[in-house]
């Protein structure tokens, strides 16, 4: 494999037309820009969980550790502690990080570890042929809930804000340039940066129209109080009236975990 190329030889097995392709494209554009800005290519490293999102490991030719379902934020923090010069990203799914690995998300935000988390939120467990996750709307008809799920959905942005995340943003997979800019900002943020990416699952939960009718771009920056209001504008339900803001909700500078651990 040519270490100068961001692509690998691996055949892509995402569903044709899957927004994961758009996310991958945004990531590659953002990384290319950062390399041009002078960050050595070998200093990028990413981890991923398990699920459709995680196949990015096979398609993105960068240093990477394909970890365990739900656990790759922990792996990412270990990498960052061991070599703080590295730019560490963690690609995770909604089932991955809001279900299986939610404790790691809360604690990574709490300690303000200097990594970037990119959530491919397709709001179902797709690779296991569709079951509900923490962000599936109530009534979601998946293979384990043929009559609709009975649980209310979780608003992950509220969770990470109250957990102490110092950068919180939301993007939409099909707004590639907008998403690329969010990725750039997230990586450039010093501290725990959290980027939720709304990703329609075209096979099992095709909510493109729902999103595209409701999405609008935020005017940043916002205070913490304003961020709270904007974050709660949409509660991840199927509400007819709600609007869905995307962009940077919150950003604040705080000492990072690694700075504090490694200060001596």
């Amino acid at each position: 494999m040519n270490p100068k190329n961001l692509d690998t030889y691996c055949q892509n097995t995402w569903c044709p037309g899957c927004p994961n392709f758009a996310i991958l494209e945004s990531v590659k554009r953002a990384i290319s820009e950062l390399i041009e800005k002078g960050i050595p290519r070998e200093n990028f490293v990413f981890t991923c969980g398990i699920g459709c999102h995680a196949k990015i490991f096979d398609y993105l030719n960068l240093n990477s550790f394909y970890g365990l379902h739900g656990r790759c934020l922990a792996t990412a923090q270990g990498i960052k502690l061991a070599n703080p010069n590295l730019k560490v990203m963690a690609f995770v799914g909604d089932g991955d990080t809001y279900n299986e690995g939610i404790s790691h998300l809360i604690h990574a935000a709490k300690r303000n570890t200097n990594i970037t988390v990119l959530v491919h939120d397709n709001r179902n467990f797709a690779l296991t042929v569709s079951q509900f996750t923490a962000t599936s709307p109530k009534g979601f008809k998946g293979s384990s809930t043929p009559n609709g799920s009975i649980e209310e959905s979780l608003n992950p942005l509220e969770l990470v804000l109250s957990s102490g995340a110092t950068f919180i943003a939301r993007g939409y997979a099909w707004k590639i340039d907008h998403l690329k800019n969010l990725i750039l900002k997230a990586i450039e943020h010093k501290g725990f940066s959290f980027l939720e990416i709304l990703q329609p699952c075209i096979t099992f939960f095709d909510n493109r129209q729902f999103y595209e009718e409701r999405i609008y771009e935020l005017k940043s920056p916002l205070s913490k109080e304003e961020a709270k209001i904007k974050i709660s504008e949409w509660d991840y339900s199927d509400g007819e009236k709600s609007k869905i803001p995307i962009g940077v909700f919150y950003k604040v500078e705080k000492p990072t975990f690694e700075d504090l651990v490694l200060k001596n």
Binding site: F65, G67, T75
Partner: peptide
């Protein structure tokens, strides 16, 4: 998982 990340690095 953190320790494995550190070893990997």
């Amino acid at each position: 998982n953190m320790a494995l990340g550190a070893s990997f690095a």
